[in-house]
Design a protein around this nucleic acid. Structure first.
Lengths: 202, 202
DNA sequence: GCCTCTCTGGCACTGAGTGTCAAAGAGTCA
DNA sequence: TGACTCTTTGACACTCAGTGCCAGAGAGGC
């Protein structure tokens, strides 16, 4: 797409509207809750029609989780760039660690996390996004295990990727529960250690 | 509730209707697909009103996944009954193995699994049910790790339970993908082995 | 100025899920 | 048997998410 350095006016306004609607919606969500905010509310507050809203976001959940799909792609790139000396787990954890997170202040991130873990439909969608990440990351892990990237017969890579993402999720929930008092990275490492038995477990 | 040995007629008919509607709906699902079947279709085929349907099932997904909630409770009981000598992983895996599965012939189970893994809304709900199982099983695992069952500060138990369930899910998907050609139990063990590093992993 | 391409809003529609209400059957007590 | 209570039921209306269709307006190329 980046044929022209400054893109078509269309694309630029589209991007601007997208961001503006997302901003408006997020502030409504944080103010009165996700489920209590209807699409009509958002459309009215953003000054667009209901119909146009659905041209920018497929679902209400996409406003909150939309970036996650793009983030999965970034993680995949980062994973592929990890040195071949790193084993599957290390490479995955480093890829997650080194992929830039959306830049918000901690208070807002915590607020969003609480909404995410407290709203069933959002939680469900977020788990679905993790499945997408899984599909994205598994081929590279297969490669690192010495298996053909499309060998669906071997489920070891699937299991490892899925469990790393599960640990990320568990850590994220713990982080949210503790009001962000501990570093998310440490929590992820603790979860992985518990699973892999490197630390003390019965 | 079991005051009378043979329950009130109300309760019995209610149970019968519940089962009958579920049976009707499942055959419609398998025939023309989950998403292509509307609640009106089901209600009409089962000979009840649309409104009554929602008195038996909260959502369309509950027809397929309704038993899972009850099954979680059975697994919890089985887990608590495992001997104290078993470590967290062994106890969890044995509890899962020894909890009776809903008795269907393998062909039907496979068909349902394919529907489950192929329908986003069903997949999402099923992941949510796993979260419920997680909450149910974690206290007992905390106990086995020597932590207070309600100690939310320690996330090791959460991580272990979540990863075992993730392995179950990954194995279930592989089982479905391979048309049930391998034993689900073996697949689960393979997934766990891959995660815990007992087998060869880079 | 013309043609095309995209974005937009409006309208109507489907489908899930909920609240309300009046009617009918089941169970209990006298 | 009759009166009273409790549950279930169907019907209607409603909200909300999401989609298809269509006509109009603005941007960009020629």
């Amino acid at each position: 797409m980046p044929t022209t350095p400054d893109q078509k006016l269309w694309a630029r306004t589209r991007q601007a509207v997208h961001a503006e609607v997302a901003r408006t919606a997020m502030s409504l969500f944080l103010e009165r809750g996700f489920e209590a905010t209807t699409i009509d509310d958002i459309a009215a507050a953003a000054g667009i029609s209901r119909r146009s809203f659905f041209r920018y976001f497929g679902t209400k959940e996409d406003i909150v989780l939309g970036d996650l799909a793009a983030r999965g792609e970034l993680i995949r790139k980062e994973l592929e760039a990890r040195p071949a000396t790193e084993d599957a787990w290390t490479a995955l954890l480093n890829a997650l660690r080194h992929t830039p997170r959306p830049g918000q202040d901690d208070a807002t991130t915590l607020q969003i996390s609480k909404m995410l873990y407290g709203t069933p439909s959002l939680r469900a969608r977020s788990l679905e996004k993790h499945l997408q990440w899984q599909a994205l990351l598994t081929p590279e892990i297969r490669r690192r295990l010495g298996v053909a990237p499309d060998d669906e017969h071997d489920l070891r890579a699937d299991a490892i990727v899925a469990c790393v993402l599960t640990c990320l999720d568990v850590a994220g929930e713990a982080w949210t529960r503790s009001d962000g008092s501990q570093s998310l990275e440490d929590l992820v490492l603790m979860a992985v250690a518990a699973v892999r038995g490197s630390a003390a477990d019965t």
